[in-house]
Nucleic acid binder design. Structure first.
Length: 424
RNA sequence: GGUGAGGUGGGUGAGUGGCUGAAACCACCAGUUUGCUAAACUGGCGUACUCUAACGGGUACCGCGGGUUCGAAUCCCGCCCUCACCGCCA
């Protein structure tokens, strides 16, 4: 959620920035400015009335104490009359506040100044790349066929148990998953993150605070009976740990990491994009989250990006780093880097990580603040997160790129975790 | 799931209708004292919205939401959560 003060002070600039994200409803900004003005004038009026009513009540109390019953009784009429006025004004105030809020939550975050305009994946900027694209022979198999061939991945079984898009990993496939999770968690710990095991279901407040609600409601699985949501990413519980907190500046940077399965409905996806592990309803992911001082968040973003790149290098996977254009970056982020690996049998890039700085967009909803040393006032902290890494697609790339006539070769860094060197 | 007790500021905890945005203590911050540290003493110390050029005001908030009343932390209703015991149970 954007900060009201920014909209109030620089509405034109806000609109300019929103245009880069191709946000079509720029009139919302003007409407908010108007509503805000109205809201504040009503609040002044309301506060004055409340003040009047309150002081009369105090007076009545005084009179009773002095034994002046009749005078007290006589005074009771005035606050009673004021109350009607106050109630009306309050209704009005609440309605306007609600209208303002409804508009405010529709505005996406403002993109950072380096975010390119655009709305197509082609408009994303390749920042750098790493690793060598593997040369596979013509009869190289896509990962879903490899999964079947070596009996390590069964999509059809998942359909039987649950539905399409719920993979089942078997034998060395399952062990590979577990190895990757452990590897990623160990790497995160070495990088200074505290490991957390959060709940996999969250309540509405949490889903709202990180921006999943109301924007992406349709993308989450919903437990209707208890009003819980299955998490689409560990970002939600990990960041919400700090909801309604005023942290100490000395605690920065706060670094937490956690492994969770992620559940996504992926409504509207179809075709070859969703084959095998390319797009599934449940996948495993290790997420890293940092909470920092606003002055340092962009340095932190680079640090997190480097961490994820390091993982891909250790896994010997070819990758590229994209700076997302305005139209392609998410609702809540100010700047996002996507990392993609090249899946050589499919001959396509797969997104395996997304590293974002949300600046104060999430913390404003979270009410996550810190006390500024100099001004002694509370300020919103910056939140960041990144996948480090998302498993399903990593596995897809790994299987495809490392296939040999003898079997699928496990990268060196993973062997101490898998306990085997080859899947055959 | 059942029954009972309870939810007050960073912490402990007082407060059953007005003088309570909230005692006291602890923690914390600033200062005095001190060779240093400690102790002692003095002062300060919630959040949000809002008015003001500023000084300084106003309003709301005692788990959340409603109600009664001139007036609610305090009374009433609903919900949430915590603890204890019982039941069930990986």
């Amino acid at each position: 959620m954007l900060e009201l003060s920014v909209i109030r002070e620089k509405p034109d600039w806000v609109k300019e920035r929103l245009a880069i994200k191709n946000f079509p409803h720029l009139q919302l900004v003007d409407e908010i400015v108007e509503l805000d003005k109205k809201r504040r004038s009503i609040q002044k009026e309301l506060d004055d009335l409340l003040h009047k009513s309150k002081s009369i009540s105090k007076e009545i109390g005084e009179l009773y104490k002095q034994g002046k019953r009749e005078e007290a009784e006589a005074l009771k009429q005035e606050p009673k009359r004021l109350k009607e006025e106050i109630n009306k004004l309050e209704d009005n105030f609440d309605a306007i506040k609600q209208e303002e809020f409804d508009r405010l939550i529709k505005l996406p975050n403002l993109p950072h100044s380096c975010v390119p305009k655009g709305h197509l994946p082609e408009d994303n900027v390749e920042v750098r790349s790493g690793g060598e694209l593997p040369q596979l022979s013509g009869d190289a198999l896509p990962h879903w066929e490899l999964g079947e061939k070596y009996n390590i991945l069964d999509m059809r079984l998942g359909s039987k148990l649950t539905g399409a898009g719920f993979p089942v990993f078997i034998g060395k496939g399952a062990r590979l998953q577990r190895a990757l999770i452990n590897f990623f968690l160990d790497e995160a710990r070495s990088a200074g993150y505290t490991e957390i095991q959060p709940p996999h279901l969250v309540n509405e407040k949490s889903a709202f605070a990180t921006g999943q609600l109301p924007d992406k409601e349709g993308q989450m699985y919903h437990i209707v009976e208890d009003k819980f949501f299955l998490i689409p990413t560990a970002e939600v519980p990990l960041t919400n740990i700090y909801r309604d907190e005023i942290v100490s500046e000395a605690d920065f940077p706060i670094k937490v990491a956690g492994y969770t399965p992620c559940f996504r409905r992926e409504a509207g996806s179809y075709g070859k994009d969703v084959r095998g592990l390319n797009r599934v309803h449940q996948f495993d992911k290790v997420e890293i989250v940092q909470i920092t001082h606003p002055d340092h968040s962009y340095a932190t973003l680079e640090e997190m990006l480097e961490h994820v790149e390091g993982l891909l290098e250790k896994l010997e996977l070819p990758y590229r780093v994209l700076r997302l254009c305005g139209g392609d970056s998410t609702f809540a982020s100010a700047l996002t880097y996507d990392l993609e690996t090249y899946s050589a049998a499919q001959k396509r890039w797969l997104e395996v990580s997304s590293v974002s700085n949300f600046e104060t967009f999430q913390s404003n909803r979270l009410k996550l603040r810190f006390r500024d040393k100099e001004s002694k006032k509370t300020r919103l902290a910056h939140t960041l997160n990144g996948s480090a890494l998302a498993l399903a697609r990593i596995v897809a790339t790994l299987l495809e790129n490392n296939q040999t006539p003898e079997g699928i070769v496990i990268p060196w860094a993973l062997r101490q975790y898998t306990g085997f060197e080859i899947i055959n």
